[in-house]
């Protein structure tokens, strides 16, 4: 097995899976019906991406764990998603900002992964990129609307910025997994991705009249399987059926 590729795919797939799971909690509770549809649509895209990525991870691992086993039967510290995607939905502004930070990272990432020497990874990136472009357009527009909307909406989303910014540097976390695959030409450096993320966030914040927080202290841990308290509850829901009724077909 190519251990580093497997790890990389789990990081990529788990980000999609956990954020898709989080967004699906909005179903039936959106601020307007159109946004209910939009959020569940994005959730659906992310679950679709997670399925393709984890399916490929399962082939690379080659130990008989299919995509569902990977999605539903790992323990908490075996999930490698960033802390950002597991943060609670909060209010609509918290959800939209979390989504914007993520989309602004995913778009340049997928753009570069389409150039991967790994044909499967590049095909997944190609398909996901189309979806992610829409996601970024949708989340950017809402960040601007809320930031430059009413005084109340501006204050609310400015607070979201202060809460969520500290989880963004982890999106660009790199270790030997990345460096190994970068040398083989399979994945891109996250330094360029970070530059583009900075550019997107600055432009949208400018239009939204939002300020960067003064304190730039940040957290990480998710990429090594160290999660927040929220993660256990996400898994308790997500894994409920597979844990309560093991080894059955659904």
């Amino acid at each position: 097995m190519q251990e580093t590729l497997f790890q990389y795919l789990l990081r990529l797939g788990d980000d999609s899976l956990i954020l898709g799971q989080r967004l699906s909690e909005w179903c039936g509770h959106g601020p307007i019906l159109e946004e209910d549809i939009a959020l569940t649509n994005i959730s659906l895209d992310l679950i679709g991406q997670a399925t393709s990525i984890l399916k490929y991870a399962s082939e690379i691992e080659n130990k008989g764990r299919d995509e569902d086993k990977l999605a539903f039967m790992r323990f908490e510290n075996e999930y490698l998603n960033t802390l950002l995607v597991e943060q609670p939905n909060g209010h609509f502004g918290d959800t939209i900002l979390r989504q914007f930070f993520f989309d602004a990272f995913r778009k340049p990432l997928y753009e570069r992964l389409t150039q991967s020497k790994d044909k499967q990874l590049s095909a997944i990136a190609e398909k996901s990129l189309k979806e992610t472009r829409y996601h970024l357009k949708h989340s950017s527009e809402w960040v601007i609307r809320l930031g430059d909307g009413t005084e109340e909406s501006h204050d609310k989303i400015q607070k979201s910025v202060e809460n969520l910014m500290r989880y963004t540097s982890e999106l660009f976390y790199e270790d030997k997994v990345d460096l190994d695959l970068q040398q083989k030409g399979l994945v891109c450096s996250l330094k360029d991705v970070k530059q583009e993320w900075d550019k997107t966030v600055r432009a949208v914040f400018h239009e939204a009249t939002l300020k960067f927080p003064d304190n730039n202290w940040s957290f990480d841990g998710g990429r090594q399987g160290r999660h927040s308290e929220h993660m256990g509850y996400i898994l308790a829901d997500m894994q409920y059926m597979q844990r309560a009724y093991p080894n059955m077909k659904w």
């Binding site: 699906s24 019906l33 209910d36 569940t40 659906l44 679950i47 399925t51 059926m241």
Partner: peptide, 25 residues
């Protein structure tokens, strides 16, 4: 949706509930 037993069921259920929102519209 958050407790659907596998990825396929989760996606289908999401799509279904989304259709219902569309019908509402």
């Amino acid at each position: 949706i958050t407790r659907a037993p596998n990825l396929r069921r989760k996606a289908v259920l999401l799509a279904k509930v989304q259709d219902e929102a569309g019908h509402g519209l």
